[in-house]
Design a binder for these strands. Structure first.
Lengths: 231, 231
DNA sequence: CGCGGCTTTGATGTTCATCAAGTAAAGTGG
DNA sequence: CCACTTTACTTGATGAACATCAAAGCCGCG
């Protein structure tokens, strides 16, 4: 790979690594010229449902939640996205307006590329398009499967599932600080705040986890896994 | 459009209409040469979860359900697909094996195109790829939104929703024969068979619908719509 | 005919949301 | 920095929504 002439100076830019392999130097540079990097603080709203889709957004670092407001005003979280994910992949090519909102759960940096530029690249470079498609497909699959699997579980199973999600997928450690409130957990896995708390307490009493405010440590992972699968 | 030299003789082939606009004659012919058409009887399994993805599948006519078996063996239906939909769009480009099964709810004809051929076309023709991407994106969006919206509803709301889905989207008539059993409705909207029956009976008693075996007629559509939205 | 699957209704119990009330933590303005 | 307000967290009690269990009628099919 001859990256020395490329104007993007994002060292280790995953965006490039993941799909831009298929682009040549001039194509990459055309992207670099229009790309904007933007930082958000914890709690900032990055994308608001209903606004026009103008850019292709890639999560460089941080953590975000993707959610929507139901007609009745209730907030539903459909995914928590970690770096390397093309957070804006949902709806990007099917709609003109965002159907979902995105909010930073942690200090977050995103990379934005004008949608027209991406569209042109796809038109002129099929390999690039195929790469994006694979990403889209994986992303949608993941969300759909997660939803289906959560739907069948009872509350205990959902809590166990979400604990494992944080431990395995997001923090890669059995001890971590929850990036979300109990209320947000409730919104993510479709239950009430009270029950989130109740079940976490139960798990604590049963010696499965240790709780210290936002910090959670999984003590008996085998059991949590069993509850997640079975519950 | 100069379709007179094209070897595919599927009159009014939607597949062609929808994305093949972007293909030239020789490209279309390359597709026509490898395409296979296959018919299925009501109840036949078209795709089984876990088998290798070899083909790109398009629903020409009929009706299918897309579902998966949960680890515990319970069947969950995630979508009912009508013609014009690229039923195999889920997972096609992200996985090597199907994550879902597809089964004919009615006599059904599908068009199968070797996946390698499609992949090559995308590589060489970006516009074609973009068309497929839009389809994929729409399809995933629809499934995700439907799931989210069903999740919040209570049982009455879900039944109302599914009745409207059949009336508006699938049969385009307020009187139709259910293509699925009560049990399958339960699997689609995540509830028990008994409650599907109970609530349909309630709707009948309240004069909202008329039931005659598999035949259902929506009498008070306004009310059903209200229940679907509010419930 | 009789068997198995689909449908229907009723009775019972569990799970979970809702309501209420209180404590802890985290902003906010003087 | 402290009183004040708001927001997050926690626990218990109650009731509603829903699953489960049981039993019986119906229908198609070998």
């Amino acid at each position: 790979m001859s990256q020395h002439r490329i104007t993007c100076n994002c060292e280790g830019c995953h965006f490039r690594m993941v799909v831009f392999d298929s682009l040549n130097e001039s194509e990459i540079n055309s992207v670099c010229e229009v790309k904007k990097e933007q930082s958000y603080k914890r709690g900032d709203i990055i994308i608001e449902e209903g606004t026009e889709i103008r850019e292709f957004i890639y999560l460089k670092s941080g953590l975000v939640k993707i959610y929507r407001k139901s007609p009745s005003g209730k907030e539903q979280i459909l995914n928590i996205a970690t770096p390397m994910e093309f957070v804006s992949l949902l709806s990007v090519f099917s709609e003109t307006q965002y159907k979902f909102s995105i909010c930073a759960l942690d200090d977050t940096t995103v990379c934005m590329i004008d949608l027209e530029t991406v569209r042109k690249l796809i038109l002129s470079n099929g390999a690039f398009g195929l790469g994006i498609m694979e990403k889209m497909s994986k992303n949608a699959d993941k969300i759909i499967l997660q939803n289906l699997s959560l739907n069948m579980k009872q509350l205990r199973g959902r809590i166990a599932y979400i604990l494992l999600l944080f431990a395995n997928d997001i923090y890669k450690s059995d001890s971590f600080d929850l990036p979300v409130s109990r209320k947000e957990i409730a919104q993510l896995i479709d239950m009430t705040t009270e029950n989130v708390i109740r079940i976490l307490s139960e798990f604590r009493k049963d010696g499965l986890i240790r709780i210290n405010g936002k910090n959670i440590e999984i003590v008996n992972k085998k059991m949590i896994e069993q509850i997640s699968e079975h519950g």
